[in-house]
Nucleic acid binder design. Sequence first.
DNA 1: CGAGCACTTGATCGCTTTCAATAGCTGTGG
DNA 2: CCACAGCTATTGAAAGCGATCAAGTGCTCG
Lengths: 247, 247
Amino acid sequence: MTIKAQFDHSNCADCPIRHRAVCARCDADELEALDAIKYYRSFEAGQTIIWSGDQMNFVGSVVSGIASLTQTMEDGRTQMVGLLLPSDFVGRPGRDVAPYDVQATTDVVMCCFRKKPFEELMDETPHIAHRLLQMTLDELDAAREWMLVLGRKTAREKIASLISIIARRDASIGQKGLSGQIVFDLPLTREAMADYLGLTLETVSRQISALKKDGLILLEGKRHVTIPDLGRLMEEAGDDSDGGFLV
Amino acid sequence: MTIKAQFDHSNCADCPIRHRAVCARCDADELEALDAIKYYRSFEAGQTIIWSGDQMNFVGSVVSGIASLTQTMEDGRTQMVGLLLPSDFVGRPGRDVAPYDVQATTDVVMCCFRKKPFEELMDETPHIAHRLLQMTLDELDAAREWMLVLGRKTAREKIASLISIIARRDASIGQKGLSGQIVFDLPLTREAMADYLGLTLETVSRQISALKKDGLILLEGKRHVTIPDLGRLMEEAGDDSDGGFLV
DNA sequence: CGAGCACTTGATCGCTTTCAATAGCTGTGG
DNA sequence: CCACAGCTATTGAAAGCGATCAAGTGCTCG
């Protein structure tokens, strides 16, 4: 069930994702046009936002919270194929049917646009189309980065990769630095991590325990993580620790 | 070393990828503008077209042949993250440095555009930007499809997936039907397949032998494949055999 | 004819999965 | 306040799949 949005963005100027979302490049006029076709929806953690195969009648941006794109095989095996953070875009202009399940991993607020008007708007305003192209290219890069993780990394490297990516994204959104300690909460269950990494949840649990034992991460409870040295963790992930690109 | 292009497309109208490439939607004027900044380059099988980290001074389309995008870890592990077929686009407007190696898997002819003028052209001609967005979204879908393969499929399913995807793409380009027998040549070495699938070349070889023994594929020599029943092969790949989307 | 390459096949090893039991936490109701 | 259900997570033991190491085949080209 959709719960009530806990904040009212009557004004796009106040929007927390204003400068990163699909509308980032829009001028006042364009923003007004978008405003006319937008509405907010909220979802509780665990809810499915869109079912694979469903008719899509909106596209939109994640305003707050985390959602995931998931593919499922007939026999039930699942693979997460995308992690949607605030400002990420959901849906594809020009496509009617959703190819993946979209699920709210945490409580999620979305800024939705009715698809038809959005598509028309996109044809008229190059700023939107251009920004969407940029974001899609970024997602493609992230997907390809992830293919390397899925195809060639060991379980330990996969976990280290995931944790350092979450840490970097978190730091990037919160404008915190990457040097010194990084502290954050894992937004994913062990099972969701396993789905993302192509592992079982038991293996995820074991490898997290191992990283903890080796002092690469500190755990308080199940979810609260402190990274004493991100560089060391990224080495463990098999990345060159200079790789400074933030998704 | 670059070898001489074996055909001269003085005229875009004759181009074999005219209707599928980034220029697909362009009108006569736009085509002329593109024509002014284009040039052809040819590469021999095995050549590296672009090195990861290199300055990119062009973008372009694969006209003929097959190229691959590959990521490499410091210790030498590699993962193919994209397979570029005729009409596929190489390079990213707005980015200077190549993030992946691009290699010619077979002999390749590319239609290149100098990057700077292409970027300017893109800002002016929505047809190009729009088509590029479409193609990028398609590639993103393909990448996500592949994440499921890499993360959750068994070696046998991976091989079956790769062969049926090549078969479908081949049939789509050649305008051949998908019913009845499909006959084609594998454009990849066992090692390249392994790189694509996150396997070793020995495992690839074993699984191909197994599929052959089970009658799912017929082999003549090492590369020439006949698929007696694509539906059955796709079942083996773990896909629902109706999944009719062609990349 | 021999070198080089792509590929195949065999034997063994080890990592991740699978199956299974247990711990810890939260919320509910007696 | 405690007992218990339900959930998430941890840990152990055993099995299986793909990797690794190794040898050998078949083809092309000089």
